[in-house]
């Protein structure tokens, strides 16, 4: 049966949640106008300075919430993919989400130059889903989607969609490049409106994901085990993959493409709580939220009033982690 070395560590979850709350309060105090944690609590609860309260309520709070929510979504997506593809290096990118979103955004801007600012991210997440559909259809062979095939096709589709996007951009108006900044992964300018755009989708997808945790467990055991446990493999895999793509697509709507969050968070969570999805999913989501909130707070706080995009910082942390993972998995083989 399963190795007994992974004792479920239930205590990690409340600990991570507590950590997230603490970080949230620190992040609320970070930025062009610094506030101590005590001042933050004072401004939120007690009598306060009007400007400080406006900065907290109108700018920082929605920004932190959008960052946390989208970090969690990316992480959940990555957790599912790493399980289904059974590869710790898997991330939302391998189902074409990033390139699909980018291409859709560019096409959207070319066809509708005066597209309202809110439509662009929505279009981008639709593109992300479409790209996943393409990957899935291409990867399906005689009614079956082998994980390794999915990963390879995913990389190929990602590369070709990205190439297509660049090709279009070469001839494009420079206002398009301007509008595409959001794709680079940033929580800059996130407001309540953006939070409420993402929230309904998250409120549907996250509970579904959590409810399906046992099926995800079975899928991650391997095709043979899953079949012998009586699971109809392909429908289950399609649901899991679609869920992962959907989670990432919704996250793109909020923050663009935040590099490596969907890779690091679930991987680190697995080290903390083991591979069972019942714990892995909440732990991944909390870690993903922590990662993005920390990156955004750092980006705001390092050299104010200059803002470093959160995506840049997550990539800065993520790329070495990825290399370390590659070396480690390489050695195991």
């Amino acid at each position: 049966m399963i190795k007994a070395t992974h004792r479920p560590k239930h205590s990690s979850i409340p600990l991570l949640a507590l950590l997230l709350c603490g970080l949230g309060i620190l992040a609320l105090g970070t930025g062009a106008v610094r506030m101590s944690p005590a001042e933050v609590v004072q401004a939120l609860l007690g009598p306060h300075d009007e400007t400080q309260a406006r900065i907290l309520y109108e700018l920082r709070l929605p920004r932190i919430l959008v960052g946390a929510l989208c970090g969690a979504l990316f992480a959940a997506s990555g957790a599912i993919l790493q399980g289904v593809v059974r590869n710790p290096l898997a991330s939302p990118d391998i189902v074409g989400v990033a390139a699909g979103a980018g291409l859709a955004a560019v096409v959207n801007l070319m066809l509708l130059p005066n597209t309202p600012a809110w439509l662009l991210p929505v279009g981008a997440s639709a593109g992300a889903l479409a790209a996943f559909g393409l990957v899935y259809v291409l990867a399906r062979q005689s009614g079956e989607v082998l994980p390794i095939r999915l990963a390879l096709i995913g990389v190929a589709v990602e590369a070709s969609l990205d190439g297509l996007r660049r090709l279009i951009l070469v001839r494009a108006d420079d206002s398009i490049a301007q509008a595409l900044i959001f794709l680079s992964g940033t929580v800059y300018g996130a407001d309540w409106e953006r939070l409420f755009r993402v929230l309904p989708f998250a409120a549907v997808l996250i509970p579904i994901t959590l409810l399906l945790h046992r099926r995800l467990d079975v899928l991650s055991f391997g095709d043979e085990t899953a079949k012998s446990l009586g699971m109809r493999l392909e429908p289950a895999r399609l649901v899991a993959l679609a869920l992962a793509a959907g989670l990432a697509a919704v996250a793109v709507m909020g923050v663009g493409i935040l590099g490596f969050v969907g890779l690091i968070a679930p991987h680190a969570a697995r080290l903390l709580v083991g591979p069972r999805f019942g714990l892995l999913l909440p732990a991944s989501m909390l870690l993903g939220a922590l990662l993005v909130v920390a990156a955004d707070a750092l980006g705001r706080g390092l050299i104010p009033p200059i803002e470093i995009p959160a995506g840049l910082l997550t990539t800065l942390v993520g790329a070495p982690y990825f290399l370390y993972l590659m070396r480690k998995t390489g050695r195991v083989r």
Binding site: A32, V33, T51, R54, I181, R300, E307
Partner: peptide, 18 residues
């Protein structure tokens, strides 16, 4: 007072100068 760059002005810094 600098309130950030032209491409990404800091909204907080703008708000704080009222």
């Amino acid at each position: 007072t600098s309130i950030g760059s032209r491409a990404q002005p800091s909204l907080e810094a703008i708000l704080s100068v009222r």
